[in-house]
Amino acid sequence: MSHTVGHEPILGKFPGLEWDEEAGALVVPAAQAAKIATWLRDNDAFLLDYCSNVTGVDYLEREIKEKVTNEAGKTETVIRIEPSRMDIVYHLYSMQKQTGPLVLKQRTNREQPEVESLTPVWRSCELQEREVYDLFGVNFMGHPDQRRILMWDEFEGHPMRKDYTEPFDYEWEPTPHDEVLERHQRGKVIV
């Protein structure tokens, strides 16, 4: 098996770098992504020369119910609101050392998402960051050629966002299948 890259030595090098235990990812502070990525690529201890996968994850604002013990020693359910955010995830490997993966995440807001492009560091981000721009609407600063890639240029909206709603389909025509689809859209639980 390939060896995973330890994250402890990286944490001390850059202030503001955080380790997200649940996701198993390094969360990069704003506007430092390119600097850290270059360091990871060129440092002899890591040599992460291969960026495999780039993608976005859209988190809506959500309520989390938690059980908390209060001062009186009783447990009670507290509703915590987790703010919405947008994650850009990079999976890094080293071809020279045959190690990996190290997961890098850039966090940004949902309203005006803007992160640093890592295309200057790894060319493999070029098409994938274009895809994230197209489907999530994230603005990559420093991307050499940021255009829509899968949807056409005149398309409005970003379909992979969780709150995206389909526009009216002008090519729609009735089929015997419509009733089935409608029933499914009425929100059935999928087994």
Binding site: H177, E179, V180, L181, R183, H184, K188, V189, I190, V191
Partner: peptide
């Protein structure tokens, strides 16, 4: 209706 709910292209009614 288990098959109806798990059908990926939703073709069962």
């Amino acid at each position: 209706q288990i098959c109806e709910r798990s059908c990926p292209p939703q073709c069962i009614y």
